[in-house]
Write a protein that binds this DNA or RNA. Structure first.
Lengths: 350, 350
DNA sequence: CTCCAATTGTGAATCGATTCAGCGTTGGTG
DNA sequence: CACCAACGCTGAATCGATTCACAATTGGAG
């Protein structure tokens, strides 16, 4: 059924080696032969078997990417950036989403390792880095995405979440809010705790400001709705005057819940700011203020680091403890109607 | 560097065949041996090489999925459904997005075929089905997703887009609108033309109703913004009193553009309805009325058909023109504030 | 004590593309 | 005219897991 190089070779009256050369190093073959082989390929409908190719090569031409949630536009943007960079080197991105679940994360890592991917980009769920260290030790480079490597064991591309959290809450302080609620969770996720940490710093730097933490089970619109509903149900006097949500999905959920039945006005009663600045944030019921991260650039850079690392590994071969690279981008405050009523509701053009 | 079955076999003092048996048919091996082999695997850090496995097996354990746009939540929902069903059979989804671009679509198909995927799920860009037919002819089953197969050459899972379009415009008619604008494009995409066709039917069934078509270059928020801006710029008397957008992304773009500077009020001046009912639709500036499609179910069902077909092919082996299956779901109207003011769960915008 | 059957385990062949040492030709140089 | 380099091509070896016909061992029945 399957057409192999052997059959193509027979048809074109050349050896299999020549067919392979036509496929991979056409300049090493005379034009006439190239044409003859191509004709045979066309006539037979030959399609290269990637498994055989990979087996021989020892590594696949793809890169694994494990994200926390594919439904979060932030991560699809990261994926797009990664894909773009990978394509430049003829590589492919394999996308896995852990759904904030350790088992799923683990099975994607297993899968990717069995596939002998060129490397793994991952937004790790927790601080269970030993797993990743072993993976890396076995020869699969790992780059942490949207998460700073604590030490030099991993390369990483991240945005400073502490600064981001600080930016958000400082903004809330500047518009006169003092009773802040931080909505986010689970606390096992580093991005959440870092943003919270930044928020704390801003709170401490602001006289008279207090903060409560409303923990959520995940970083989704649904979880945000639940948190928002809980806040709405309280007596008006007991409500915060500002909410900082750990990401835009949560923020949008909070927003929906707060505005339900017109109970709470945003930003009049409660100012709201999210994180990530996803496209939809600008289109929310009330356009969402947010902290922008260069998502596509993060993905692009991560693949870049990975390929650099993989390239070196090929050369060195000496599995030495090379210094890993860490890239950190700075987050940026984007002000819209959910914190400042008369702020332009349209997103800035790229 | 890489640990192979051979080394595991040596370490456990058994043959490679036995190691393979432990991995794939543990019941055929005595418990003591199984344990010994597992120990060797652990000690050596052995990881199966999937390429070798696939080469032998002839097919990979993954399914290719090509969608029009990963950034559209509708498609990520489809992907999630597909992933769930695939996981039930220990299979994986490879996600490719064509970005409404024929070249990208083509290169994903090439890639998937070289990978010898179990089958391909695709939301085809155009009506260029010969390409897919050849693919299928060479032994890779194809299931059309969110697109009804014109004839019986392909299995397909779709939602009736003509009915959907009709539902949308009939709703606009019922709330008293008569001057409709259909926003969507490119017209090469079947979903667009089908929804437009449905819209036409509703228009023709409604005395005094007229419709104009505002063609867009893609189905994105950005394209929607452009279309919306064009409408906003017109003299008030020249504007439509309702807009039906070919998907929610477009609709949200239109919404943003219309409301800019408070020029046009939605739904007072212009009622707006989208398509897909993505999660964000409910959270828009004005909650978006839309046509709901069972996205995850579509993905789930598509994989189901695919696996059924692939299974049969294994048995038959007789490449005969078997009858393909076609599944069609019915769309559903969801009314929110963008068409009916009091359906809104919040005060209307400034 | 034989004999047969069931149970375990063996190892060479296989999948298909790539690689590489090496062979035969050609054409240019001294 | 001899010599050599460059070129075009060959074909066997290779990657690593799986498979399968067959060998070795064990146990139970007769």
């Amino acid at each position: 059924m399957a057409v192999s190089v052997r059959e193509v070779a027979a048809r074109a009256a050349v050896s299999v080696g020549t067919v392979s050369n036509v496929l991979n190093r056409p300049d090493k073959v005379s034009p006439a032969t190239v044409e003859r082989v191509h004709a045979a390929i066309r006539e037979l409908g030959f399609v290269r078997n990637d498994a055989a190719r990979q087996l021989r090569a020892g590594r696949s031409r793809s890169i694994g990417l494990v994200v926390l949630d594919v439904r979060n536009p932030f991560f699809t943007d990261v994926a797009r950036g990664a894909e773009d960079r990978a394509a430049e080197d003829g590589m492919t991105i394999l996308l896995g989403n852990s759904d904030e679940n350790a088992d799923r994360e683990g099975s994607y890592l297993d899968l990717f390792e069995e596939q002998r991917v060129h490397g793994v980009l991952i937004t790790p769920l927790t601080d269970d880095l030993p797993r990743l260290e072993r993976l890396q030790g076995r020869g699969t480079p790992v780059v942490l995405v949207d998460r700073e490597a604590a030490d030099r064991r991993f390369s990483s591309v991240a945005v400073d979440d502490v600064v981001g959290g600080e930016l958000a809450v400082r903004h809330l302080a500047e518009i006169g809010r003092r009773r802040i609620a931080f909505v986010g969770g689970p606390m096992a996720i580093r991005q959440v705790t870092d943003r919270l940490e930044g928020a704390r710093r801003a709170v401490e730097a602001t006289p008279g400001m207090t903060m409560e933490v409303v923990e959520t089970e995940s970083l989704t619109v649904l979880a945000g709705r639940a948190a928002g509903a809980a806040i709405r149900e309280r007596a008006a006097s007991d409500r915060p005057d500002a909410v900082f949500a750990a990401n835009d999905l949560l923020a949008m959920g909070v927003l929906q819940a707060l505005m339900m039945q017109g109970t709470v006005l945003v930003p009049d009663d409660i100012a709201l700011i999210g994180y990530d600045d996803i496209d939809f944030a600008a289109a929310a019921v009330v356009p969402l203020s947010s902290i922008r991260q260069p998502a596509a650039l993060i993905g692009y850079t991560a693949v870049d680091l990975l390929l650099k690392e993989a390239g070196e590994a090929d050369g060195d071969e000496g599995e030495q403890e090379r210094e890993r690279e860490r890239v950190i981008f700075q987050p940026e405050l984007v002000v819209r109607g959910s914190t400042v009523p008369d702020a332009a509701s349209h997103p800035s053009a790229p």
